[in-house]
Simulated scan of single mutants.
Amino acid sequence: MVRIGAIVLNVSDTGRGGDFWSRALGYQRGDNPHFLLPSAGGGPRLHLDATDRTHLDLWAADEDEQLAEVERLQALGATRVAWDYPEDADFVVLADPDGNVFCVVNAGA
């Protein structure tokens, strides 16, 4: 079963956003300064991005689970979104019945 692995948050300034959200949530910066991680180890990471829209990243354990979850979510009413994927994409972009996009990520990739 997928879980919320990351919340991608659109911010105009990742440094300022990182300063605010790390203090607001008690998160700490990871090796990548755009990722904020829960200090206590539980919960999704926060991915700060100035170019992407706000959305959820749902993490699957491996490629098999990712494909099964994409099928399951489509059966629940999600639709696949036309997307310009990079060659080494580890994610699939879907939209919920209201058109909100989210990604199903192969976290094992």
Rank of each mutant, 00 (worst) to 15 (best):
M1W: 04
M1G: 10
V2P: 15
R3P: 04
G5I: 05
I7P: 09
V8K: 13
V8Y: 06
V8F: 07
L9Q: 11
V11L: 07
V11D: 05
T14K: 14
R16C: 01
G18Y: 10
D19K: 15
W21F: 13
W21N: 03
W21S: 04
R23Y: 01
L25I: 04
L25A: 03
G26Y: 09
Y27S: 02
Q28V: 11
Q28F: 01
R29F: 01
G30V: 07
D31P: 14
D31V: 12
D31S: 15
H34E: 12
H34S: 14
F35P: 05
L37W: 11
A40S: 06
G43Q: 08
G43V: 00
P44C: 02
P44Q: 06
R45C: 00
H47P: 00
H47V: 00
L48M: 03
D49L: 02
D49G: 01
T51Q: 15
D52H: 13
T54K: 12
H55G: 02
L56G: 05
D57S: 09
W59I: 01
E63Y: 03
E63K: 14
D64W: 05
A68K: 15
E69S: 13
L73Y: 04
A78S: 11
T79L: 08
T79R: 15
V81M: 08
D88S: 01
A89G: 05
F91Y: 10
L94E: 04
P97D: 03
F102L: 02
F102N: 03
C103N: 02
V104A: 06
V104K: 05
V104H: 07
V105F: 05
N106F: 01
A109I: 00
